[in-house]
Design a protein around this nucleic acid. Structure first.
Lengths: 263, 263
DNA sequence: CTAGGTAAAAGAACGCTGTTCACTTTGACA
DNA sequence: TGTCAAAGTGAACAGCGTTCTTTTACCTAG
C-alpha cells in the first residue's frame, strides 16, 4: 500500500495560524476515524506545517527533507511513512499554499466596503499574500513539474488551482450582475474556453458566463499577476520607485480597460 | 585573487548557436590578451555553455556543478578556478540568458514588416524565447537571490537586466516619434521612475521620455510577461484552449489599451 | 492478561551533492 | 634553463534524498 493517503482533505482550511501551534493536537471531532488514523493525520499535518515553515524563500521554495525530519524530531526515513518522496511532500505543501491564498482572497472579499471596490481589493489581497509568503509563492508559481505548483492533467494539485481561480471569477460574475462591470465586447471575439473552467463558471453562475468574459478576466489576471511577478523578481523595482502605488494604478488601469466601472 | 574575472564582457553576443560547437576555439582576434588569457576565456565560456545545456528545465533551472565538470572533462574542484561557487556559475549563465533574450528581441525588431506591427512582433518574440528556453526562463525569472535572475543593487547581473528592458523602451520611443503610439495620458498621473531607468530612457531618446509613458509601458510589459508566466506554469492552459491565439489577442488588447494604434 | 500482528520509527548504508585543501603538473617568461 | 604562478588533480568532509533491515510500540483477539 502506498503512503500519502492524506490527499483527500479538500480545500480551504483557515491556515495562516497553524505555524504557532504544533502541539500535535489530535482532532477530537473525527467520527469514523480510529485513534491511529487521527494520530497519522496529526503527524502528517505537523510535517507539512514544519515543511512550510522551512521552505527556503531565497532558494525558489526549496526544501530539505532531512531538515524537516530534524525539526519534527523524526529520522528522515520516517517521513517516508507519510510522503512518498520529497517532491510528494512539496506538492502537498503546494496544495496547502493554494488553499491558503484562495482563502486569503475569499476573506478579502467577505468584507468589501463601499469605498474600496472589489476588484482593487482582491488584487491588493493577492499581492499582499504573495509578498508575505515569498517561499510559498516561489513554490507555487515556479516553472517545472517537480515543484509544488503542478497543474498537469492528472495532478492532485489541479483542483486546488482551479478552486483558487474561482474567487476572481465569482467576483466578476457578481460585477456583471449588478452592472458594475460592462465588458467592452467590441474587442472580444469568440474564444475557446477549457470545459473544466466552463464547468466552474457554470457552478458560479447558474446561467453560465460568456467565454469572452472569461478570456478577458484571464487577461486581466495575467496582467495583475505579471506585475507581482516582476515586483518580486526585483525587476519592477528597477523601473518605478513606489511599488505599492504603481501596483494600485496598474490594477485600476487594467480593471478599467476590461470594463470595470467606478475604479 | 578571486576567480571569475570574466564578468566584464558586456552584453549581447549572438548566442543561440553556441551549443553545437564546443571545440574550445581560442578567439584569434584578441589584441591585448596573452595566450593564457584567451585559453582562460575559452574554458570559462565552455563551462558556461555546458552549464546552460545542463540546466534542469523541470527543476526550476537547477544545475549540478559536478555534472558540468563531468561533461567538460574536469574535476569538480577545477571549476572553482573559474567560478567562485555554483551560484556564481548560475549567475553567469543567467547573465548570458538575459543577453540571449535581449538579442532575440533585438533581432525580431531588426526586420519588422509593415503588416506585422512592432509591438505584437516583440511580444511574440519574447514568448517564443521563453517557450524555447524553459530552463533559462526558470533561471532568470525565479524568485530568490540565490538564482540567476538576481537584480539587486550591487549585482553584476543588474546591467544585463536593464539592457534587456532597453529593447521595448526603444520601440515605444520610436512609436511615439512616428505617431503610431498615442498614450492615453488622461489616466496617467505623475509617477516616480528610478533614476537608473530614466538614464536609459535618456540614452534611448535624447529628448527623454515622460515618466508616465515609462510607467504605462512597464504595466503593459507586466501584462504580457504575466500571460507568459501563467502559460508556462500551466495555469493559462487550464482556462483557454488555444494559447498562441489567446496570447495574440491579449497582446493586441493590452497594446491598444496603452494607446498603440493599428494593432 | 497474555500473544500476535501490524503500523511507526530507527538506524545504517548507498550514491549523490557543493566545497575545501594539499598536492602535482603545466606553460610562459626572465 | 630555471622560476613561479596558474591550472588541474585527488582525497576528504558534511549534507542531501532514498532504500533497506531491524527494532519499538500499540491495538486487537483469544
Amino acid at each position: 500500500m502506498t503512503p500519502g493517503g492524506d490527499r483527500a482533505q479538500a480545500a480551504a482550511e483557515t491556515d495562516e495560524t497553524g505555524s504557532s501551534d504544533r502541539s500535535l493536537a489530535l482532532p477530537k471531532d473525527a467520527p469514523g476515524l480510529t485513534r491511529r488514523d487521527r494520530a497519522r493525520i496529526a503527524t502528517s499535518d505537523e510535517i507539512k506545517t514544519v515543511a512550510r515553515s522551512l521552505l527556503a524563500p531565497q532558494q525558489g521554495g526549496d526544501l530539505s527533507l532531512r531538515a524537516v525530519a530534524r525539526e519534527v524530531g523524526m529520522t528522515p526515513s520516517a517521513i517516508y511513512r507519510y510522503f512518498e518522496s520529497r517532491q510528494d511532500l512539496m506538492e502537498a505543501v503546494g496544495r496547502d499554499a493554494y488553499d491558503s491564498v484562495a482563502s486569503a482572497l475569499q476573506r478579502a472579499m467577505d468584507d468589501v466596503t463601499e469605498e474600496e471596490k472589489g476588484g482593487v481589493r482582491l488584487a491588493h489581497a493577492y499581492r499582499d499574500w504573495c509578498i508575505e509568503h515569498p517561499a510559498e509563492f516561489a513554490l507555487i508559481f515556479r516553472y517545472g513539474g517537480a515543484d509544488g505548483g503542478d497543474a498537469r492533467e492528472d495532478s492532485p494539485t489541479r483542483p486546488h488551482v482551479l478552486n483558487f481561480y474561482r474567487v476572481p471569477l465569482e467576483l466578476m460574475v457578481a460585477g456583471i450582475r449588478d452592472g458594475s462591470v460592462v465588458a467592452p465586447m467590441g474587442l472580444a471575439q469568440p474564444v475557446d474556453i477549457q470545459p473544466e473552467m466552463l464547468a466552474i463558471a457554470q457552478s458560479v453562475a447558474a446561467e453560465g458566463v460568456r467565454p469572452e468574459v472569461i478570456a478577458l478576466l484571464a487577461g486581466a489576471w495575467a496582467s495583475i499577476h505579471g506585475f507581482i511577478c516582476l515586483e518580486i523578481f526585483g525587476h519592477m523595482g528597477l523601473i518605478v520607485t513606489d511599488l505599492r502605488e504603481s501596483f494600485d494604478r496598474h490594477v485600476r488601469f487594467t480593471l478599467a480597460s476590461i470594463g470595470v466601472r467606478d475604479l
